[in-house]
Design a protein around this nucleic acid. Sequence first.
DNA 1: TATTAAAGTTAGATTAACCTAACAAATAAA
DNA 2: TTTATTTGTTAGGTTAATCTAACTTTAATA
Lengths: 219, 219
Amino acid sequence: MLSYTEENYLKTLLKISLDKEKEEVGTNELASLLSVKPATANEMLKKLKKKKLVDYEKYGKITLTKTGKKNAIDIVRKHRLWEAFLYEKLEFSWDEVHEVAEQLEHIQSEKLIDKLDKFLGHPKFDPHGDPIPNKKGEIKIQHKKTLAEVSVGKSCKMIAVKDNSRSFLQYVVKVGLGINNEIKVLSIQDYDSMMVIEVNGQRSSVSQKFAENIFVAIK
Amino acid sequence: MLSYTEENYLKTLLKISLDKEKEEVGTNELASLLSVKPATANEMLKKLKKKKLVDYEKYGKITLTKTGKKNAIDIVRKHRLWEAFLYEKLEFSWDEVHEVAEQLEHIQSEKLIDKLDKFLGHPKFDPHGDPIPNKKGEIKIQHKKTLAEVSVGKSCKMIAVKDNSRSFLQYVVKVGLGINNEIKVLSIQDYDSMMVIEVNGQRSSVSQKFAENIFVAIK
DNA sequence: TATTAAAGTTAGATTAACCTAACAAATAAA
DNA sequence: TTTATTTGTTAGGTTAATCTAACTTTAATA
């Protein structure tokens, strides 16, 4: 049985390795994502190594073992199923679900998750458009493009967000964006790559940083 | 903000004071209900006193303060709402809901509970027949009789159970009993108060201890 | 390549929640 | 009312997860 804390370390390690193809998981980055000091993360890594959940040598690379990864994926599955529940059944807004799911993902009951999955009709994506792993731990990987890669004059459909932070999501809402919305790229500024986009008739100017955090399907 | 552990102490203190009218909450009993040693409970009591959640003097009585009680009731509210959810929406059986709700009751999100309450249609009772406190912390107290108080030849309706342990609940199910079932008391043994009861045509012999843990409404 | 900067590690301390063992107070029994 | 038993408390120790400060290794840069 894993502690709440151990689960969070595994989850974060998985997130780093998925988010960035570069695969370079470092103690400092891990620590900063978990809001702890590097020394703390280092200690936990030793503990997780002893438990055979990560492969790790002093000053070396950090990778999840097969077991570690399965555990991490299970947590992600729980997180996303809860998000779907909050959004679809309890009328939570898009940018509110993450925080509560951070707590719910640690509830220990296989039966609960199976039943929840069934209750929701076996959803494939969470409210942010991220795929929900199945019980076996398989994830449908969709190699997604970001809004930043769309060229002037083209249209696309928003399918997910990269950043799940509340501040970002609220910004997204403010621009009038949501999952499945059509986005038209009206212009791109050469100098700083600012984009003017149109969503449901609403025009907005967005930064490159913003555009890089919106996943889209190009028509 | 209360820790998981502190919440459990408050909840248990409330349970003791409600279950038994005698009101004698002792360190040992508290400790045993929480599966910790008396020394541990004692330490926590000092901590809760400092936080003004319990009133307590050395060797004296333990009582919840107003704040402590409100906190405890909020946890009970969450617990029972989650039980109702598990039972009604996720098809958990009657005897399975308690354990999972023990975890879910600690999720911190007022909005979540409000939404859940609404989603369930503001239920007044949990699957065991226990009243769900409202948001203000008010509980509909139903001074309930137990099956042990029913006399021979009389009929009654089961409305709740006193003991929420899995073993007891499974026994209840085995006897063919459930909330709202009609029970007829066919005979009571003078010597040891064993009862023969009939439920949906099924006759069973039950001990006094069993009968004392079934709450009923007498017709 | 030698030096500096960044990243990672170790040592020693702290806090919450728990323990055992010894002691003190209150209550019940003789 | 004195003694024995139960109940409650204190002291000192453990573990998980955190910290700061000092140190070491690796990587970057001059």
